[in-house]
Each structure stands twice: as C-alpha cells, then as structure tokens.
Design a protein around this nucleic acid. Structure first.
Lengths: 209, 209, 209, 209
DNA sequence: GATGAATGAGTCTTCATTCAT
DNA sequence: GATGAATGAAGACTCATTCAT
C-alpha cells in the first residue's frame, strides 16, 4: 500500500521562513472560518484568500489548487490529533488498563468535541478528497501508540493484540463520530461516553487486558 | 423537537401513477449511479436527468431543486434500511440476547457493506444536506425496534434500557462506518465484526441482558 | 397606416358561448392578478392558467401564445377605457368648454387612478408588446370623441381643432401618466389635477374654445 | 423618504482606473445597443458581455447582477439628462418667462427625441426595476433647477411656486413621453411642441409668471 | 375538447485558475 | 514576489409550448 500522499495533492512548497509559516497558517485558519461560517459549498478560493488577508495569487503560491489546500488542512488536523492522542497514550504507559481506556476515550472524545464546529467543518471539507492515505497514516500512528500502551499494562496478556486493538479503535472512533453526528444533548453524550468506557473494559477484560 | 422535514426540502409531488413512480425511481437510480461513477462534485442535475433518461424539466417537476432530490434519496435509503433492521429485530423476539446481537450486527453490517459503493455514494450525498430530521427519525425507529427486541429476551432485566440501547446502537452504527471508511480488507472486516459482537455481548451481559 | 392588429397577435377564436366568455374573462382576471401579485417577470402561462382555474392546454385553445394573451388583455383594457371616456364626452355635448374639460380630465384621471395596481400591471404587461396598433386605434377613438365634444360647445370657434385637440389629449394623458409614475401623495395629485384643468382651459380660451 | 438607492442594486465597485472606466462604459454602451437591437426580452448578460467585448465574469465584477447593471444605466442616463436641463435652466436666469419655457421645453424635448431609440430602450429597461429612488432624485434636481429659474424672471411673482412648478414639469415631461410613445410624424410633433409652449405660457401668465 | 406531464433551449450566476502589471 | 482583474466553462433552474391520453 502506498502511503505517500497522492502526487497531485502535494503542497507547492514547504514554507520555512516565519513569514511564510504565518501566511500558511492564516490561510488554514481562514479556510476553517469560511467552512464554519458559510459551508462547503461557499468555500471559494477567493473567499479564503480574502479572509486570510492575502491575494488569491499568493494563495496559489502555496497551494497549487483548492484540493491541495484542503488536503493539507486535513493533514495538519490529523497530525495534531494524532500527536495529542499519542501523548495521552505515552502518559499512561505502565498504568492499569482501566486508566488507559479512560484516558484514550476521554482524550479522543474531547479533541473531537471541544470545537465541534471545527470538527464538523473538517469532516465536510474531506468529502470528495482523496485522503485515504491520510486516514491510513493516522490509523497506523494510532495503532502503534495504543498497542504500545496496552502492552505496557502490568496485567497485559493479549493473544491477538492487533485484532483487539483495531477493534477497540474502530469502536471508539466510530462511536464518537456517530454520537457527534446525531447531535445528542450534552448530558446524554457524557453518559454514553461512560458506557463506552465500560464496554471497552469489559471487552479487554476478556481479551487479555 | 420538530421532526418533519424542512419545508423547503419537500418533494414537489407525490407520484401516484405507475409511470410517475418509475420515473422517480429512475431518477433515484440515476442519482446513485452518477454519484458512484463521477462523485459528488460531478453530480449535476443535467447529468442525473440524462442518465435517468428524462429531461431536466421533468426532474424539476418531481423535485423542486437538487437538494430536495438528495433529501428524498436519503430518506428512501434510510427508510429501507430501517425496515430491514426492524424485520430482523422482530424475527429475534423472544430469542437469546446472543442471537439478537448477532442478528442486529450482521444485518446492519451487511446492509451497509453489500453495496459499499452505494453506501459511500449516499454518505457523500448527505454532506451539506440539512438531514438532521431524517437521521433523528431513523434513530427513533431503530431505538424502538431494538429496545423491544432486547426486552423480549427471556433473561432481560435492564435497569436503564434507554441508555444501554443508545450506547449499543451508537457503538454498532459507528463502528460499521469507521471500518467502512478505513476500507480494511474483507477478512479483517469479518474478524472485527465478530469481535464487535463479542464486545456488545460482554457489555449487555453486565448491563442486564 | 395599417391599424389591424399584427396578424400573429390575434386571438385564436372569438368566444361566443357564455362558457367560453367566462373562461376568457377568468384568464384575463388571472393575468392581472398574477401581474399585480408577482410582477411581469413571474407572469408565466402556467401560473395564469392555475390562477384562472383552467389547464395550460385550455388556455392555449384561446390564446395561441403568451403574447396574444397580453395583446388581448391590453385591447380589452383600452376598449373599456375608450368607452368610458366616450360616454363622458357624449354627456357633455352642448355644455360649456369648462365643464367639458373638467369631465374629460376627471374621467380619465379616475379611470387610471382608481385601481392603480391594475393600471400599473397593464403598463408593465405592454412592454415589448407590439401594441402600436392598439395605441393608435385608441387615440383615434379619443380624438373623435373629444373633437366632437369640443365642437359642440356654444362658443366653439377653433381655427385648427385637430392640432388643438391632439395637444390637449397629449397633455392630459401624458400628465396623468407622469403623475402616476412619480407616485406623488394623493393631496398633491389632486392639486395638480386642478391645475391641469386650469391650464387646459387657459389654452383653449386662446385657441377658440 | 429614503432616497439612497436600494442596497442590492448598488454597483459592485466604483472603477477608478482608466481601463475600468472604459470597460464600464463599453458595458453600458453594449447594453443600450442590445436593448435597441434586440429588445428587453433578449437582453441577456451574455449578449451584453459579448457585445461589450468582455467576458461575463468581468461584467459581474462590476455589476453584481443584471438588475444592478440596468439600475446603473438608468442612473447614468438620468444624471446626464438632469445635468443638461440644469445647464439650460441656468442659462436662462434673469431672462423672460417666455424664453425660459421655450428653453426648458426645447431642451427636454430634444434630449428625449434626438436619440429616440436610446430613449425607448431606456424606458423599457426600467420596467420591473425598483428605480423609484432614481426617479425621485431626478425630480428633485429638476424641481430645484426650474424653480430657481422661474423665480429669477424680472416679472416673477408666484403665490405658490411649488405647485405651479410641479404642474409645469408634470405636464412637460408627461406630454413629451406621450407624444413620443404615439410615434407621431415629426412635423406634427413639432407643432405640438409649439402648442405646448403656448399652453405653458398661458398657464404661467395667470399664475404669477 | 380538456388536461397537465414532458421537453430542452435558454437564463443568470459562480468560481477555479491564469497572467499582465 | 505579490496582486487581483479577467476568463469562460459549467451549473442550477425556468418556462413557453406541445401532444399523448
């Protein structure tokens, strides 16, 4: 499987100088703002540029086309998300499985929920984007981080850690998205989150965790 | 909460005659085909009409605008899906919780997977569509069907069936979507499905199921 | 000058039976209503038919196309207007010029003003309509009626009645339209109307009236 | 009364550079040409752009929509007309009422008549355009210009100059339009124009002029 | 005769992308 | 390097008119 990003989606240049960095950041930020404020179907290059305070021409210096911008935006987002979860996982090394699951679910859930408008904006920006490679790369980082964490538990004794882990992550990530999309009231969301932890623990308990 | 569809998304006329029925069906089918074959961003009213073998004008006689078409398409899809799951649930009334979960997970999973291109097409068509009402209605039907089923198990003794049930459905539906989106190889998908059943059963076992 | 209506604008059939008459009337009425309620740019054959309570097909039985409908509508309107003015003129035969002018101005003014929405609708419907023949025919009827009236005054002694008359009518008709279009407040309109009468009388006084 | 133009009818940008100026002028000219050559119902944005030698996109950079273009066109036209009449009025300050009226009627008449196709085109373009504000602004400029002129006559002694003036203008402007629309032969038009002057003078004579 | 579904050319408008300044 | 005016293909939607039932 080829995990490098599709060639045509690569950004034109990796900005090194501070000025370029902040320009790119401004563009990213503007993209999100437009997405939130106007929706995908009104996300135009002109509008983004305007909001970012640069000219379209400049924008095209950094991103050869709209798709590349969205791709990079998602890349950045997943990168930060992965980093955040990795840190949380690392912090749980050696602790009990219970603590691990609580930390994992909570971290991911909060990351997705605390700025729900942003999350929603990014979901919608990803449609029709050939971002399989990104998803896959993200999944691998997550797999590595959570497997390492789970194995480090004192009582860990998994017979098929890969399967258990991929199940666990699919369940957690999937549930969060589902709850998110149903737009349930906050208290109910919290209740479900607790139940999700319970369920995962019950599962790990019988799987060698 | 108002569950009726947003006024502006209503279809223009409910076709009564056979001819009209088949025309509408042809339009739905064409929409899906275009979605699959060309993607959301190439889903144009002209293309759909052409593929359906009717004129744009005719299409606009049945659907006041593109959004209404997509809305109706999603409505039809969720309707069929709900019906299918409801039937499966009914068939398990009185059986063991294990059989119930196996049937529920399998039915939903297969419904989503057997025509994965169609499922994908519909997911993408729903973006930027004000379909909260549809999702909500679907959720209610599912809730009712699965709660009734779970309660009918000989050993059923749930203290908070609503919470248990909403958790269960969020987990199942969410996981299916997540696995679906990661596009994992078939054998791995099957393995995860089995694990999912195991996990749900473990959860219900400790929740009164 | 050819005063018969442009061939292509002729109505398809002259309805003789009562049923047909009322249908045509309903269509005329509907046209005006749509014009008033939605404006020229939303005046569609379908909408008119719907409002008239007939099918488009039926409408096309009476009017071979939209233009013919609008032509006929204007014809009817001008006909009635002409008739009304003619009657008023006839009623003044033999009276003083002052009474004549008062009657003429008042009659025309009121005919145009009492249903200003209808008047406005008809003005707008006439744009881009080849209705020169109608205008001309109307003008001739008016000319005949007012000349006959003016000549019948006891003191009448015009050296060029044709010129005086065409001037008079142009001034009266034009002024009404101008005031109408400026949409001046009612009291001001009334004041101007009085002044107009004064002005016309001053003119006739020095022209042999 | 709010006389600023309806917000949605404002032009998108006020062109500053020479290039932009000429582009806008070309668009205006093209609009008139299309109007004259094809009529209102064939006045399409594409046709105008084509005739102006620019792309539709460019046109939309200057005018946010078709209505705005027509609005601006009428604005420009009325502006020039007002300016022309104002100049003529100023030139008559201090002269006799007779000279004033002759100048006023002649100037207005000629402005409307010398390019009758353009005048006609603009009349038809204004239908269904929310141009009340324009009309009103034009009326005010005219009022100011003619009142000032009339008052400056040596013999001026009006008891109600406002009423006299509004009557005068309504009569003159209305008559011109009426004669214009009846499309009378040139000699007759000239004769009526003379009569109009006579009539206005007779009126002013008895009103304090 | 009446109906109204079907047609499809024709409208307005948007927006990714380029390139002269 | 930056800018933003210009491009024009493409999209959503309308509506006069026809004709099978």
């Amino acid at each position: 499987m080829d995990l490098s990003p599709p060639r045509h989606l690569k950004a034109r240049k990796k900005p090194r100088q501070t000025r370029a960095m902040s320009t790119v950041d401004a563009i990213f930020e503007a993209t999100i703002q437009v997405l939130i404020g106007e929706g995908t179907h009104r996300l135009t290059t002109t509008r983004v540029a305007e909001r970012a305070g640069v000219s379209v021409g400049t924008m095209y210096q950094y991103f050869p086309h709209k798709q590349a911008l969205l791709y990079a935006l998602n890349e950045r987002y997943l990168d930060r998300l992965a980093e955040r979860v990795e840190k949380a996982c690392l912090a749980q090394h050696g602790k009990s499985t219970k603590e691990m699951i609580e930390a994992l679910v909570t971290t991911y859930w909060e990351a997705k929920t605390e700025r729900s408008d942003v999350t929603r904006a990014l979901y919608s920006s990803a449609v029709e984007l050939d971002n399989e490679a990104l998803i896959e790369a993200f999944a691998r980082r997550m797999d590595a981080a959570t497997i390492a964490m789970l194995q480090s538990a004192p009582t860990a004794n998994y017979s098929d850690i890969d399967l258990v882990n991929v199940t666990l992550l699919s369940v957690i990530f999937g549930t969060v998205r589902n709850v998110f999309e149903r737009n349930l009231p906050a208290p109910e969301q919290i209740a479900i989150r607790k139940q999700l932890i319970v369920m995962c623990l019950a599962y790990l308990d019988m799987s060698g965790g």
